[in-house]
Each structure stands twice: as structure tokens, then as C-alpha cells.
Design a protein around this nucleic acid. Structure first.
Ligand SMILES: [Mn+2]
Ligand SMILES: [Mn+2]
Ligand SMILES: [Mn+2]
Ligand SMILES: [Mn+2]
Lengths: 219, 219
DNA sequence: GTCAATATTTTGATAAATCAAAATCAGGGA
DNA sequence: TCCCTGATTTTGATTTATCAAAATATTGAC
């Protein structure tokens, strides 16, 4: 059984791997987890020894099948817990990530199963991120970044930003996964988008930096 | 912030202290937490340095005011979590202790407050043990051991046994906190009690060892 | 192709928890 | 009072996770 620390490393590598093309640089892992590079290097050797990653010094790491499975298991727990905290306990959207970051490592399989059942085997967390199923299969859900979108009508699929003020701002402006809106215009040089959000009045402006965290689907 | 380990030591000392008359022997702490005596000794020095216990070598330890407050805080969390798991998630009576043993250290104050609210500020956990309030005040609830009781009518107040088969056995026989029953007779030499439990049919027999874990109130 | 900037690894320490086994103490019985 | 026994403390290690700073490798710029 991996420790909480090991699970966090695996999850971080999984996130950073993206499509899995190239190995993940050790420095990325280190900064993602806010540890020094030396600490990450040490851990990579551990994970390599445990068969959870393929680690090539100075090239990077990539998850093995076992490591990927473990990462998806933690991701599933994280996202189910987040949704549970929002849906059942009514916690704030922006608060649940920190809570889930620790609960994901400690709840029993039995408790997780009850949560999953109580939520009706959901496929997306409160941020719209897909929840891997019990077998570790990730539901496909294709969204494009709002930062790359041109004028048109869209639905917000996912906010890929786990903590902080962006979530609160989105709530305040009526933007949450599932919300529909019109992208009125996208001033690329200025880096500003103007939206008319269903259910909100007036026009909302936001910058590319924020839009980069929003995954949308044209409708 | 104390670590989970420190919190467990404080909670153990609190439990073992009873009325608080005499200091708790280090060996008791060690066996309660299933660590070697040397480990407990080391920790007592630690806790002493942090101002959480008064530790007199070879005499024992006793919680300071700060240590007692911390212990009650953890106890509150433990019991609220147990009740939550039973009431809201429908987990098994016998499963919740192990789960709470770890959750008690990691849930945020915010989450705990929501749980408390959702349960309606309860004063007893699923085993009937009193839940300290947010200020650390322990609700008084006077029960006597069934092992010392004579024939008569009683109500079960509390089962002071956190894990294992006794809980399952009690459930199976319709005995839970709040249940009423008649103690038909108590054969002290043989160590056997015979009860007629409200809502169950026939007569149930149990031994003094089990009865010793049941706190009852004459009604 | 050389070399300096950047990324990574190594080295030497530290903190928290723990154990095994040796040393020590304290109290009760002779 | 003396000593034995059981409880406790000490000592010396180990594991996991971390950092700071020195050493080293890679690579893109020239
Ligand atoms: Mn999250
Ligand atoms: Mn985590
Ligand atoms: Mn319990
Ligand atoms: Mn605990």
C-alpha cells in the first residue's frame, strides 16, 4: 500500500504527463508538489524501485501501468470526495479541493463505495473533471480551451483549476460546469473575451488567463 | 498543530486517566497504542516539552489543561464522524470506529461544523458515548455497568467497546443505545445474565464479560 | 565546437516515529 | 534490610520524507 506521499507523487506525474508522449521532467514534479528538486529526484528513485515509474536520470519519469493504475485510483477518490462534499454536505466549491487532497488517501474502500453509490455513480466532479470508474477507465469528454475559441454559443464543460479565487469569481458570475453562454467577441491582442451568460444579466468580460482554465464545447 | 500521532497519544491518555486521580502509567499508554514502552517514554518527553502533559519519570503522565483540551477536541471529532458515518452514509456500526480513527485527524473545522450541523448538534455517538461540545464540555450521562446490576427494568445507554464482534452480536439481538429490556436474573457465580429485550423475542443470555461493556440506567 | 546557463543529481543533515535490547529503578516479599 | 522482579528508561538503529548547498550533466547560443 503506497503512502499518501507516494500517491501524491503519482497523481502529480499523471497530471503532468498529459498525452503521455514525452517523459515528465523532474523539475515539473518538484514544483507541482512544492518540494526541492533533490527531494523529487530521491522520490523518483524510490518509485522506480517500487515499479511505479520508469525513471531515466536526467530525462524524466513516466508512469508504469501499475503507477498509472494507482494514480487513477487516487484521482477517482479525489473527485468523488469533492463531489460528495459539495452535493451532500453543501461545502463551498472552492473549499473542497484542499479537503479532498487529504481525504483521498485515508477513506476506506467501503466508505468510497458508499459515497459513489449515494451520488449515483457520477462521471464528473464539481469542476466538471471526469471521474475514472472503479476499473480505472476515464470517461472521455472532449472540450476545447475557451482561450482558443471564436465567437459563438458554448457550454462550459470543465474548470481546470483546483483552488483559489477563480472558482469564487465564476460562481459569482453564474459560470459553472453545464452553464451555456454566447461568446460575443474575443479580442486576441488585448487578451479579453466578452460573454453573455445564460441566467446572468449584462455582459461579462474575462481575460485569456482565466479563459485558459475553462474547457468548453460549441453547441 | 499536533500531528495525528500526538493526538492519538493525548486521546489514549485521556481515556486511561478515568477520574484523573492518579497519573497514567507509561506501560498502559504503550499497550493502548500498541507501541513498545520505550516508544511511549520518548513520546511522553515530547509531550511534556510541548506542555501537553505533566510527565514524572517512573510515576506516569497526566494531561495538562492544554492537553486535555486537545484530547477532547479529538474525541469530539471522532464521535461526530462515527455518528455521521452511521446516520448519513449508513455504514455499519462496527466499521465506523476504524474509519473515524483516521478521519478525526484530517477533516477541517469547516467540514466538522457542517457534519455537526447536519446531525443537529448531537450529544451521543452511535455507541452512546457522549460527544463533547465545541467548547470541550462533556455532557454528563450517568450509567452503571450492567455487570453490577440486579433484576429490574433498564435502558441501554452506552456500549463502551469500540470494535469487533460484540457490536455485531448486540445488533443481531436488538440491543443498541436506547433499547429497553428486563434483566430477569443475574447468576453471579456462573457469570450469566438473562434478559428479555423489548422488540426481540425470547430470552437472551450473555456473560459478565460482555455485560461489563454495557452501561445501563434503571427505568 | 565551446561554454555558460539551466536542470538535475549528490551529499550531508534533520525531524518524526518507531523498534530491539541493554541498563536501571522501585517496591514487595523474605 | 536486601534482593528480585516487573516496569520503565536508555541507547543505538531504522524508515520515510524533507532541505540546503555543492557537484555534475545537458543543451542551446554563439
Ligand atoms: Mn481537486
Ligand atoms: Mn493528496
Ligand atoms: Mn470509536
Ligand atoms: Mn486516531
Amino acid at each position: 500500500m503506497p503512502t499518501a506521499t507516494v500517491e501524491n507523487y503519482l497523481k502529480a506525474i499523471h497530471q503532468l504527463a498529459g498525452d503521455g508522449e514525452r517523459p515528465v521532467a523532474i523539475g515539473k514534479v518538484a514544483s507541482e508538489l512544492e518540494v526541492t528538486p533533490g527531494t523529487a529526484t530521491t522520490m523518483m528513485k524510490h518509485l522506480g524501485g517500487r515499479g511505479l515509474v520508469d525513471y531515466v536520470p536526467r530525462r524524466g519519469v513516466r508512469l508504469t501501468a501499475a503507477g498509472d493504475e494507482a494514480a487513477l485510483r487516487v484521482l477517482r477518490r479525489h473527485r468523488l470526495v469533492e463531489l460528495f462534499l459539495v452535493e451532500v454536505l453543501g461545502l463551498d466549491w472552492g473549499d473542497v479541493h484542499a479537503e479532498a487532497e487529504v481525504l483521498e488517501h485515508v477513506i476506506s474502500d467501503k466508505l468510497l463505495a458508499r459515497i459513489d453509490e449515494m451520488l449515483g455513480h457520477p462521471t464528473a466532479d464539481p469542476h466538471g473533471a471526469p471521474i475514472p470508474d472503479a476499473q480505472g477507465r476515464m470517461p472521455e469528454h472532449a472540450g476545447a480551451s475557451l482561450a482558443d475559441a471564436g465567437p459563438g454559443r458554448y457550454q462550459l464543460l470543465q474548470v481546470s483549476e483546483d483552488d483559489g479565487s477563480l472558482l469564487a469569481w465564476l460562481s459569482d458570475h453564474g459560470l459553472r460546469p453545464g452553464t451555456r453562454f454566447d461568446l460575443l467577441d474575443h479580442d486576441r491582442p488585448a487578451g479579453i473575451l466578452r460573454l453573455r451568460i445564460d441566467g446572468a444579466d449584462g455582459v461579462t468580460s474575462l481575460g485569456t488567463s482565466a479563459a485558459g482554465h475553462l474547457l468548453v464545447q460549441a453547441i
